[in-house]
Design a protein around this nucleic acid. Structure first.
Lengths: 220, 220
DNA sequence: ATCCGCCTCCGCCGGACGGGGGAGGACGGC
DNA sequence: GCCGTCCTCCCCCGTCCGGCGGAGGCGGAT
């Protein structure tokens, strides 16, 4: 059984002690190799560019350039970028969301024990398969709110009526909508009336509310 | 060095072949022990209740009760419930969101290789620390949309004006708001006018749109 | 060939809305 | 005590909105 190439790891954290501790933990594993360290976000970017590691453990709070920006920069400028694991202290830290958006492959809590740490590094190195924490759960519920089952009336609206509703939801008056759609104001009034009837609302404000609640603007 | 207790795993999948394959992979690891199997969601619930495993690998698609419901039921009815890893085929499967909401500790792709599988089980068993896939990234961007920085005008609104705006966003007319707030219609008009001025909008519809865009209704 | 849905318009009307004033009272800070 | 802010309410007026009824054309379905 030949020994495969070790997983090359870079540590980015402004506190030397943290880096030392992480290095000690990871170096104890034969399949992990800490190839570099960085104390700032900017340094992290250049170190990664030079050493091309497989995994980066990136602290969020760092001087000059924080971990989020560093992550963005690495993913944007390095080709075949490493998997970046953002390290944070609190699970509900808003940095978590930023990290996800920035393209982090995952994140770790600082209180994670040594075992979890090395397993996380291994997993993310060969990743594809993934896992989640409580913080993300709130995201899922938000997602549910943002994507409700499209209400019955959505299907009943004709093309023109949809257009008009979309324009209403932009805050346009009937006259403006008429100009925008290159039709007469009376035509717009007809469509508006149809929209109100089909949505079961009594005025344009309620119709716009219904559109927002149905996340109508996301579709089509 | 004493051997710690193995991680007890239950497999829930309606296809026998899949269960056999998973069992083969996991049993090869000395620290993992497959203690039970289930072919349906309902069976999974009772098996978990009896065997109290540390981790459950739960397929999403199963006869009778699907994996999501089974997950919900287990987490709701079993105390000290196991970590449940939902197994799915496609990363963008909408089941992923449902799984998160249901309280799954994570999810795995069926195409994950054996190594990733066992590492995921180990990680989730001692979890707390976690990682993410591309699917969740969309959640993060949604989160950003749902929680924009509160606009400047939000701070300028007086208490009454906030109230009025909230009622406007419910689709009430000035007269209705007046009744609701137990003040005169003229008072409501004043507040509405103030809201329009401060939000920089010209009519109630635009004000309501501004409120929605600012996620004004979430706050306060 | 006929019917039905959709799009396009018209006029009329009452009511709601928004703009422009102004005014009085309560409350708290300076 | 004075001033500023907020809440309360009043007037008038022009505009826009929504409800109602009607109408013509056009294209697809049957």
């Amino acid at each position: 059984m030949t020994r495969p190439a070790p997983i090359r790891v870079v540590l980015a954290d402004d506190e030397r002690m943290v880096r030392t501790a992480l290095r000690a933990i990871l170096s104890a594993e034969p399949d992990l190799e800490v190839v570099g360290e960085a104390a700032t976000g900017a340094e992290a970017v250049s170190v990664v560019r030079d050493l091309r590691p497989d995994v980066v453990l990136m602290d969020v709070r760092m001087p000059e350039v924080d971990g989020i920006r560093a992550t963005e920069q690495i993913l944007a400028t390095v080709d075949e970028p490493p998997r970046i694991v953002v390290v944070t202290t609190f699970e509900n830290d808003s940095y978590v969301y930023d990290a996800l958006r920035a393209g982090a492959a995952g994140f770790l809590l600082k209180r994670a024990d040594a075992d979890a740490l090395v397993q996380a590094v291994r997993l993310v190195a060969r990743s594809d398969s993934l896992l989640f924490p409580a913080a993300v759960r709130t995201l899922a519920t938000e997602h549910a709110r943002a994507h409700p089952a499209p209400p019955e009336w959505a299907a009943k609206l004709t093309g023109r009526e949809r257009e008009v509703l979309r324009h209403m939801a932009e805050g346009l008056t009937n006259a403006e909508i008429a100009r925008r759609m290159e039709v007469g104001p009376a035509t717009v009034k007809s469509h508006v009336a149809a929209v109100l009837a089909k949505t079961g609302t009594r005025d344009r404000t309620q119709a716009v509310i219904a559109a927002y609640e149905a996340a109508f603007l996301n579709a089509g």
